[in-house]
Amino acid sequence: MSDELIPKVKQMIIDSLRIEGMSPDEIETDAPLFGEGLGLDSIDALQLVVAMEKDFGVVVPDAATGTKVFASVRSMAAYIAENRK
């Protein structure tokens, strides 16, 4: 179920963070999004929180949850699958 969401999550990351010159295929599904991976930071995290709510109706209530959710594309997709309305 959540695997079907992976391409959509990748596209959401590209769109909401305005990552230029990158296609969804270039984002590794299991790579860390923060730090060494895509190099995202807390400003990006809030942008992703808003995008997830807008695109999937899923709320990330706090940073502690966000740390787990934004660990990778796969964890984001799993969280959306579990929590979408």
Binding site: S42, L46, D62, A63, G66
Partner: peptide
């Protein structure tokens, strides 16, 4: 943080 901030460092 208690009031709902996503991050407070």
């Amino acid at each position: 943080a208690a009031a709902g901030a996503f991050s407070a460092s």
